[in-house]
Design a protein around this nucleic acid. Sequence first.
DNA 1: CAAGTATTGTGAATGAGTACACAATTACAG
DNA 2: CTGTAATTGTGTACTCATTCACAATACTTG
Lengths: 232, 232
Amino acid sequence: MRGAQKQSGTVQFAGKRIPLQTVERLSTYRRVLEDLHGQGIQYVYSHQLAEYVDVTSAQLRRDLASFGSFGNISRGYNVGQLINTLSELLGTVTVQPVALVGAGNLGRTLLSYGGFVERGFALDLVFDNDPSKIGRVIAGRRCLDIRDAATALRDRQIGIAILACQPQGLQTIVNSFAEAGVRAFLCFVPAILNAPPGTFIEMEDISAKLEKLSFLGKNRVNPRRELKASGF
Amino acid sequence: MRGAQKQSGTVQFAGKRIPLQTVERLSTYRRVLEDLHGQGIQYVYSHQLAEYVDVTSAQLRRDLASFGSFGNISRGYNVGQLINTLSELLGTVTVQPVALVGAGNLGRTLLSYGGFVERGFALDLVFDNDPSKIGRVIAGRRCLDIRDAATALRDRQIGIAILACQPQGLQTIVNSFAEAGVRAFLCFVPAILNAPPGTFIEMEDISAKLEKLSFLGKNRVNPRRELKASGF
DNA sequence: CAAGTATTGTGAATGAGTACACAATTACAG
DNA sequence: CTGTAATTGTGTACTCATTCACAATACTTG
């Protein structure tokens, strides 16, 4: 038994070791950039974007610079171009298919959430082990038998799976998914899982988040960086 | 405009500066301990518990030791006792009320999830601004008008709120909740929010998680610690 | 009761991540 | 065409987090 935790760690990219936290920030940058793009803004300086995202400008520049040199030294960063660059890095230029395990309450909520596609993900495959759900169409997708997962995953070349099912037998499912080529898992089930070699499991325990907040509500937080008076 | 990010930061506790990451691990420890407790195990050594949770034993001992001295030097840690200690630290000895903003798909899913109570949280208050929802009973709770939130929050002494609504006007809601005594927010809405002074916002962006996984699936991850051959 | 064994808690060393500060560079105004 | 102002990318310093390694301690066994 081995827990899949928020292993901070690093990623190997073009010979460099890049902190996972940097990768997480890329998402935020991209999201804010989309916003600016929508407002018709074409160029943005590191200190502006940094302020929106609440990091230091140095942090932002280093994050981006670790993937290449994208800024114009005097105009700043081209918004549209940077969005494309980040999308390429994150692998969301084209919408990629994602598998969902579990068509319960949470699963159905995820299926009916429209926001994934515009961020580059489509929950195309739904699996369950409940005979009363298998075969039924849920939010436009036909629910498949979890036992038939392997071939379906391979056919569609699925690389990412979301786990929103019961904890029983979950390790077996993860193993077989990994066997079928799935590289990364987002797991909403509070279970102790072992990530098969070459795969990554991101745990999402909402109760744990609440526990953290509960603790923070009772004790004073020292922000990493002293907050400037916000102009908000 | 200021983004509420995963500010790593530290917490002030009994004069010590404690990393937030330590606090997050406490939840995991507690969860695994509950498991062991259920199995009737009374004592556990740091290296055992550490193996389950996938941290080093030194990490585990330091995490716990930063809050006090709980281990018996030769029997290890008393499982039941440690659970109580952690619950006290996390503030989940008694079930505490939590407010939910937004009775949409996600909100209803959270309401019908039974796992919160056993972790010490009860989603007692539900708010929405949709007249067709206000007054209706959803999963046993009557949905209240978001405009009446302030008094309800104060009456129930709510310290934590979950945000699962539309992004429009969310900052205003956060501000008024903070005014009414809410100290911590768990936000599922991909918006840029400014945490009022003395409050903490935990962002939960599922699409961002998928983007991270997408990146990781394409690039090799260096685990922080070399995995020992697992006995799983 | 003494010797042996194994564990906790922690000072010190290491490693990772962030912020500072500036050289190099570009734009632009006069 | 030159001077001025402002930005990026990055070497360096620093802070924070993790791991090492061991002294202090408690239990067990002979």
